[in-house]
Design a protein around this nucleic acid. Structure first.
Lengths: 338, 338
DNA sequence: CTGAAAGCGCTTACAG
DNA sequence: CTGAAAGCGCTTACAG
């Protein structure tokens, strides 16, 4: 394997006793070629372990086999899985990727767009950070496909992949109801936060469909563990009875749980807990999952968005990417006490 | 920006009134060129917004501006940050990357190596998963630089970047000692686990240097929260007095904490807790960090490894990448109870 | 069905 | 210091 495999198409043609163009056509499936010739050339190519020089091919075809990725914050916790999902999917299709981590600076973005154009990328994937409410549309700058992930743009025709927040709330609600819980409280971030709002809508819709009210008003704060803990104290002090809490994310859920434990309430016996994000690292074969959560499917979302770019498919508008319930000990999965 | 910027080097040469070769040399800094000519050509290039076609350049130079990445498990929790660190670093240097996620299958790896060779990658980065004890060396298959991250190979001359596990243990130990803790217990994974062993060595060395014994023998299990909880119960039952626990990772620490809370011991007042991994998502400006932990610096490790590949630097042997202590509420940082 | 030729847009010895 | 020319290894009309 170590020898530089610089056997070229000319070599193949020479050995097979045909012209360069015939060899090329035979290998690429184009044009009419007699089956016999095609087979002979294929055989020679195989025998010589011919691998077309990708650089020459790209140059001739004007296709770089590279997808550009423009990230608002590549290192953000919620961008990483999307990015990895996209990069892994692209690799599986022999597509390289070129990442520019622009931050939120419009000038940096514009410069990145120019560089991407010069690199002749075959498509562009723009990654929001999951917080930025609105992404800048750059679709007009490109003739190749542009797809957005983890954010929406200002253009309705742009193809945007976002997690299905309502589904997250629905899955959590349905799971808790199926466990017989009837007094479900909700602790999450502020109302103006789009992610919080979607998840809440899903929960409340599900409860309403079951003819149940929520256990008290939604308690709000930020996305932190401390905020969840504080809200849980308020919930307990309010005297509202509750047998489950749907938490806007896993950090909140952990904060809630610690306050419950200190207050002597047992999880899940007295109170079942569901978070969102699936942030817990569960190494396969080791232990059991502690926190029941909704996995927002960010890696799959990245892969789906990448797939559309790579396909050159046009599928305009927002796409709500499905999420998935993952059951752990805090709703009775796994061993109790884990 | 929308117009296809297909102004070519010939255009620049024509407008500047020089030959193609002169234009090329002027822009690339090569050869002797009169300052005046160089300036004029540069000016024309700027005015025309000339961007060399990267595909043509790559083809002519035989350099793809692409780094291959071979991952044992791209989607693994501990590979993601390394991968993102590497990809982001490479993007900043105009290097694309082509990821093959081979799993542990040697045939898939061999095939990926062949494809990478055909793509004429400028270098290769091999990503271990942080568990695999030994990586397969593929350095011999390439003439371009090969660097390994998050794993060691069987060849001493290979350049390998791994987290400095001993440093993690030292940082944790020193932090707890500086807080006045003197009875430090240790709960971690099995002895044969390289990561566990390194961290333990660091802790024990630090304690020994301070003339202190550990609080009891190291308690072992796996990397899960449940295992941490179980070990903590054993610790409490053993009657060994302890005022701190260094936990092999964050999951273990969370399990330990829940058992402490149920047992009525206060964190950090009665028992301080340090984990490893920095798995907690702390959104800037929201709340405070709960768990004190050692960040193993995986993203930085990925970037460092990528830098070496991109530089084409030769720096043989293992490189222990530094980690960093991150203080949270479980050792008194942040607000108590968070 | 097959081949000779042009072309993709650069870089780089080689002459002058 | 500058230019004419070859070459990187493919693909693809265009003839035959």
């Amino acid at each position: 394997m170590s020898e530089r495999s610089s056997v070229t198409l000319s070599d193949v043609a020479a050995v097979a006793g045909v012209s360069l163009s015939t060899a090329s056509r035979a290998l690429n499936g184009g044009g009419r070629i007699s089956a016999a010739t095609r087979a002979r050339i294929a055989e020679v190519a195989r025998r010589l372990d011919f691998r077309p020089n990708a650089l020459a091919q790209s140059f001739a075809l004007g296709r770089s086999r590279t997808i550009g990725i423009l990230a608002y914050n590549a290192r953000g916790a919620f961008t990483e899985p999307v990015l990895v999902g996209a990069v892994a999917h692209l690799g599986g299709r022999e597509q390289a990727c070129l990442l520019y981590d622009t931050g939120f600076d419009p000038d940096a973005m514009a410069e990145s767009v120019r560089r991407l154009l010069a690199r002749r990328v075959d498509g562009l994937l723009v990654l929001g950070d999951g917080f930025q409410s609105q992404l800048r549309s750059v679709t007009g700058d490109f003739t190749v496909p542009v797809v957005y992930a983890h954010g929406l743009t200002d253009r309705a025709a742009d193809s945007c992949y976002v997690p299905d927040g309502e589904m997250a709330g629905r899955l959590a609600g349905e799971h808790l109801l199926s466990l017989g819980r009837r007094r479900i409280a909700h602790i999450t971030a502020e109302r103006h936060d789009a992610a919080a709002a979607g998840r809440e809508r899903g929960l409340l819709t599900t409860l309403a469909e079951a003819g149940l009210p929520a256990a008290g008003d939604t308690l709000r704060g930020d996305w932190s563990r401390a905020s969840g803990a504080a809200a849980c104290r308020r919930l307990i002090e309010s005297g509202t009875p509750f047998d489950a809490v749907f938490c806007g994310n896993d950090q909140i859920a952990l904060g809630v749980e610690s306050v419950l434990l200190e207050a002597g309430r047992r999880v899940p016996d007295d109170v079942a807990l569901v978070g969102v994000d699936n942030w817990e690292t569960v190494i396969s074969g080791q232990g059991t999952r502690h926190l029941t959560t909704v996995d927002t499917g960010l890696a799959g979302l990245g892969a789906a968005a990448a797939a559309q770019v790579a396909d050159g498919r046009d599928d305009p508008g927002p796409h709500a990417h499905p999420c998935e319930l993952v059951v752990g000990a805090t709703t009775g999965g796994g061993r109790p006490g884990d």
